[in-house]
Design a protein around this nucleic acid. Structure first.
Length: 597
RNA sequence: GCCGACGUAGCUCAAUCGGUAGAGCAGUCGCUUUGUAAGCGACAGGUCACGGGUUCGAGUCCCGUCGUCGGCUCCA
C-alpha cells in the first residue's frame, strides 16, 4: 500500500485505536499510576506503544494484555475527541511524565503528539474511550465495536529509547498487529512465516553458503564453497563490466600509518568506526575502514595532466569497521567486508557526465542481477559531522540531484545522511522482512582532494584541483550476497547457481553413462554433480529441490539407450529427454541472458 | 553499546519438581536396483556455549563471559 494512502486510512485507524486499547490494558495490569505511557503510533502492518514500567514484561503479560484488550473490544466504547488547553492537558496527565514532555512540545509548537517535528500548527487534543484518555490527534475508529477482537495480535516486546535517543531512559515497546478480519490477520502471520524461509541466515545454513564463528569473532564472515562460488561469478561479471566501462583495477594494502588517516580526516570524523592502532616498529598503523586514501596515494604518485582524466580506479577492497555489537546482522551488517569500490578523479567540467555515467552503470549492474526495485536517497550534509564550506556542499548536492533527475529516478532526501567528505546518492534494497539495506552509494567528494592537495595540470599549464567520486555499486560483497539470497529466495538463477545441475542415475547400471555425461558438461563449464547414492530417485530429487539446484538430469535405461537425459527443473517442470549437446545450447543461452528463473 | 529473550548431536527440537541426556533428519555401513519431493535395518554421533558458584546431586538454580535473535535509526 502506498504510504500516502495509508495515513488516516481504515487500517491505520484500526491500528491506532488498537494501540490505545493496548495502552489501557497495560495500565490496568499494573498498580495505579505505576505504568507510564509514552507514545503509540500505527506503523506499517501494525502498531506499537512504549511504556516505562516497574518491571520487564513477560510473554505471560502479553497474553494477559491481549485478554484484557479482547474484553474491552467485546464492549462498546466510543472514541471521543476533545480539544483542550495545555493547562487542562497537564492536569489530565499529571502523573504521566512523558506526556508532560509531549504537551510542552505541542504548546511550544513545532512538535506533534509523538514529539516529532511538524510544520503545521498544533491543536492539543485527546481521544478517550472507556476510562482511558490519551494525548492524541487522531483519527480513530468510531468505537471499539469497529475493532475485531479476532484480528488483533501482540507480537513481541523490545527496548526503545525515549524519543529514540540513547541518552534517554530505555522504555519497553510492545509491537502488535491489527486487521479488519481474522483472515487478514492469518494472511499477514503467514506472510511473516514465509519471509522467515527467505531469510538469508536461514538459507545461508540450508544452502551451506557461509557461517560465522565465535572463536573468530562477531561480524566476520566465513564464505563456504557454495557462497564463494556465487560471489566469484558475481565478481567476475562485475569486473568484466567495469573493464568495458572504462575502469582500471588497483590493489592496495589493508593497513596504513596514522598520519595517512590524520590527513584524510578519518581519525577526526570517522574514528568511532575504526579499530585501535597496531604498533609496527613503534609507529601506529590502522586497519582501513575505507580505501580512498590508498587510491589517492596512487594518484599522487605521478604528475597528472588533464589529458589523463578522468581516471577510474576500482578495487575489491576489504575494509574493517567497528559496528556496535547489537547492530550486527547475518551478512547484512558485519565488521569486515569487501567493497566493490572505485574512485573517479575528474575535472570539475567532467563531473556531471561522470555522475550520470556512474548512475547508469550502477542501474545496469543491478539489473544484471534482476534487481529493479530499490529506493533512492539523496543524502545531505549534517553540519555537525562534516567539514567544508556550505556553498560547495550546496553545489555538490545540486549536482547529484540533477543527475537523479536526468536518470528519472524517484528519490527521497536523507537529511544529514551524507559522508563527512561530501553528499551522496544511495540505493537501498528491501530484505525478506521489508527492511531496507543500502547497497549502492555514489559519493561526491571535494574534501579529500583538498586535504591531500591533489592537482592536475590543465590546458592553461597551471595546477588545478580535481574532483573525486567515491562509489560502490553492489556495496559490499557480504551485504550484496545477503540481499541476493533473499531476492532469489535461495534459488539463484542458472548463471549464479553454485551447483547448476545434478545428474540422477536411476540404477547403478546407469552410473558409467552418467559419469560420462557429467564430464561432458564439466568440460563445457557447467557446474555439475552426480548423485551416486544408492537412494531412490525420489529421494535424490527431493534433496536437489531442497538445494534449489536448477537442473535435475534423470538417467535411466531409456535415456541411456537414446543417448539423452531427462531434465526436471526446480520449478517441478519436466522437459522432454534431450541430448547433452542440445542441453548445452539451452544452458549457454540461460547464462548469456542472465535468465532469472 | 542499551532493553529483553535465547544457546542441548552437523540441522530441527525434546528432557516433568534439581535425580543415569533423547528423537527425527543428515552421516557411515549393510540390504534393496528403484521412473520425478523421503525404501528398510544397523551403527556412530554430546565438555548440555564457556568459566565460576549453590547443592549429596545442576542441562535445569545463581553470577560472569562469549555468541545468537528481536528492537532501539528507518518502518508516516
Amino acid at each position: 500500500m502506498a504510504k500516502d494512502n495509508y495515513l488516516g486510512s481504515e487500517l491505520w485507524r484500526i491500528r491506532h485505536s488498537t494501540a490505545h486499547v493496548m495502552a489501557q490494558a497495560v495500565r490496568d495490569i499494573f498498580p495505579e499510576g505505576a505504568a507510564k505511557i509514552a507514545i503509540g503510533p500505527p506503523i506499517a502492518d501494525g502498531f506499537y506503544y512504549d511504556f516505562d514500567l516497574p518491571r520487564p514484561l513477560t510473554p505471560a503479560d502479553l497474553e494477559e494484555i491481549e485478554k484484557r484488550m479482547r474484553k474491552v473490544l467485546s464492549e462498546e466504547h466510543e472514541f471521543i475527541r476533545r480539544e483542550l488547553s495545555a493547562d487542562e492537558a497537564r492536569e489530565i496527565f499529571k502523573d504521566q511524565t512523558y506526556k508532560q514532555d509531549l504537551i510542552a512540545g505541542l504548546e511550544a509548537g513545532g512538535f506533534d503528539e509523538y514529539g516529532e517535528p511538524i510544520e503545521e500548527d498544533t491543536v492539543i487534543s485527546t481521544y478517550s474511550h472507556d476510562d482511558f484518555v490519551d494525548l492524541c490527534r487522531g483519527p480513530h475508529v468510531g468505537s471499539t465495536k469497529d475493532l475485531n477482537p479476532k484480528a488483533i495480535k501482540l507480537l513481541n516486546v523490545a527496548g526503545a529509547y525515549w524519543r529514540g535517543d540513547e541518552r534517554n531512559p530505555m522504555l519497553q515497546r510492545i509491537y502488535g498487529t491489527a486487521w479488519r478480519t481474522e483472515q487478514e490477520l492469518n494472511k499477514y502471520l503467514h506472510k511473516l512465516e514465509e519471509a522467515k524461509k527467505r531469510d538469508h541466515r536461514r538459507l545461508g545454513k540450508d544452502l551451506d553458503l557461509y557461517s560465522t564463528n565465535p572463536d573468530i569473532g562477531s561480524g566476520l564472515v566465513l564464505w563456504h564453497p557454495n557462497g564463494a562460488y556465487v560471489r566469484y561469478k558475481a565478481e567476475q561479471y562485475c569486473m568484466d563490466e567495469h573493464l568495458k566501462n572504462g575502469y582500471e583495477f588497483v590493489y592496495t594494502p589493508h593497513i596504513g600509518k596514522a598520519q595517512l588517516w590524520e590527513t584524510s580526516g578519518h581519525l577526526t570524523w570517522y574514528d568511532e568506526y575504526m579499530y585501535s592502532a597496531l604498533d609496527i616498529d613503534g609507529d601506529p598503523y590502522f586497519l582501513k575502514p575505507m580505501n580512498c586514501p590508498f587510491h589517492i596515494m596512487i594518484y599522487k604518485n605521478s604528475l597528472r595532466s588533464y589529458r589523463d582524466l578522468p581516471l577510474r580506479w576500482a578495487e575489491w577492497g576489504t575494509v574493517y569497521r567497528y559496528e556496535r555489537s547489537g547492530v550486527l546482522h547475518g551478512m547484512l551488517r558485519v565488521r569486515g567486508f569487501t567493497q566493490d569500490d572505485a574512485h573517479i578523479f575528474c575535472s570539475p567540467e567532467q563531473m556531471p557526465d561522470e555522475i550520470d555515467r556512474v548512475l547508469n552503470f550502477c542501474l545496469h549492474i543491478l539489473r544484471g542481477f534482476g534487481m529493479k526495485e530499490f529506493h533512492a536517497y539523496l543524502a545531505t550534509r549534517d553540519p555537525d559531522k562534516s567539514p567544508g564550506d556550505s556553498e560547495r556542499w550546496d553545489d555538490a548536492t545540486e549536482a547529484l540531484r540533477a543527475a537523479l533527475e536526468r536518470a528519472q529516478l524517484p528519490f527521497d532526501i536523507d537529511e544529514g545522511g551524507a559522508a563527512f567528505y561530501g553528499p551522496k546518492i544511495d540505493l537501498k534494497m528491501i530484505d525478506a522482512l521489508d527492511r531496507e539495506w543500502q547497497l549502492s552509494t555514489i559519493q561526491f567528494d571535494f574534501n579529500l582532494p583538498d586535504r591531500f592537495d591533489l592537482t592536475y595540470i590543465a590546458e592553461d599549464g597551471k595546477q588545478h584541483r580535481p574532483y573525486m567520486i567515491h562509489r560502490a555499486l553492489l556495496g559490499s560483497m557480504e551485504r550484496f550476497m545477503g540481499v541476493l539470497v533473499e531476492h532469489y529466495g535461495g534459488a539463484f538463477p542458472f548463471w549464479l547457481a553454485p551447483t547448476q545441475a545434478v545428474l540422477i542415475p536411476i540404477t547403478d547400471r546407469n552410473l558409467p553413462y552418467v559419469e560420462k555425461a557429467a564430464e561432458q558438461l564439466r568440460e563445457n563449464g557447467i557446474r555439475v554433480k552426480v548423485d551416486s547414492r544408492t537412494d531412490r530417485m525420489g529421494a535424490k530429487i527431493r534433496d536437489a529441490e531442497k538445494l534449489k539446484i536448477p537442473y535435475m538430469l534423470v538417467v535411466g535405461d531409456r535415456e541411456e539407450e537414446a543417448g539423452t537425459v531427462a531434465p526436471r527443473l526446480r520449478t517441478g517442470d519436466q522437459l522432454d529427454p534431450i541430448s547433452i549437446e542440445e542441453l548445452l545450447v539451452r544452458m549457454s543461452e540461460e547464462i548469456k541472458n542472465h535468465d532469472q528463473v
